[in-house]
């Protein structure tokens, strides 16, 4: 066995194979023009709807307007929801088309595949966030005290979390019908309890306890921190770390569900 062959056959993560896989996923996306258009434009249009909804609602002096508060939060929720859905369907396709089984017979490690998806959709989410944040702050006049770059960073972290949970959820779906129904199961409870509808400290104790273990809560808190503070706060960095940690945990669990040998 040659040294090159030994190196190729290791089961550890390879940056080269991860990048090749991310490139492949992005090329698949590139052929799907409508999906690209929807990814880039849809969140801005929905945000516009919210802007028009609250345009004429008066704001109490010294408080953030409803749109500033909700719009900012939505910048973190859109990428999470969209990437969760896109990834769970993409991974399910990989399973049902036989390409997953084939990939598992090649030198590609399971984590290479998952990280490749994370990288590809993370990049897609970054483009989406740049468009959405750009339009929100210029056209809709969304007021953010902190750095716009931090808003984009948090949006990308949320997207990667969505990707990781989508990869994990797809393991439990046999059909597309099942896969799309994991969206309400995984996403809606997190949305209800994330602190946007009711601030977390005003929830019942047991609801707070649940909210505190759901990663989206931290994503929303991070955005709220950027919303009021001109500089990055320690709380915000902790929140971002929690979101990233949850994404890594979900990826590890997803890797464990990818069985090379099946019955």
């Amino acid at each position: 066995m040659t040294a090159a062959r030994e190196r190729r056959s290791t089961i550890h993560v390879s940056p080269r194979l991860t990048a090749a896989t991310a490139g492949r996923v992005l090329r698949q996306l590139r052929h799907d023009h409508r999906t690209i258009a929807m990814l880039l434009v849809l969140p801005s249009l929905l945000l516009g709807l919210l802007y028009l909804l609250w345009k004429d609602v008066p704001t109490l002096p010294g408080q953030a307007s409803v749109f500033d508060r909700v719009g900012l939060t939505m910048l973190g929720i859109f990428p999470f929801v969209v990437m969760f859905l896109v990834t769970s369907i993409a991974m399910l396709r990989e399973r049902t088309s036989g390409t997953l089984e084939r990939l598992l017979t090649t030198p590609l490690a399971r984590l290479d595949l998952l990280l490749g998806y994370g990288l590809a959709f993370g990049l897609a989410a970054a483009s989406q966030a740049l468009v959405t944040v750009g339009i929100a702050t210029t056209v809709y006049g969304l007021d953010v005290t902190g750095s716009i770059a931090l808003v984009v960073l948090i949006a990308v972290a949320d997207a990667v979390l969505g990707v990781a949970l989508g990869l994990l959820a797809s393991a439990f779906a046999r059909t597309e019908f099942q896969a799309v129904q994991f969206m309400p199961v995984i996403v809606l409870p997190q949305f209800f309890l994330c602190g946007l509808l009711v601030p977390v400290d005003r929830m019942d104790g047991w609801l707070q306890a649940i909210s505190n273990v759901l990663p989206l809560t931290y994503a929303v808190e991070a955005l709220q921190e950027v919303g009021w503070s001109a500089t990055a706060t320690a709380t915000m960095w902790t929140d971002v770390a929690v979101v990233a940690g949850a994404a890594v945990l979900a990826l590890a669990l997803a890797a464990a569900t990818l069985r090379r040998r099946t019955s």
């Binding site: 056959s9 290791t10 017979t105 030198p107």
Partner: peptide
């Protein structure tokens, strides 16, 4: 069969 070392040597 299926050893990591075989994955670059066996096509399916």
């Amino acid at each position: 069969a299926g050893s990591p070392g075989l994955r670059a040597r066996v096509g399916y």
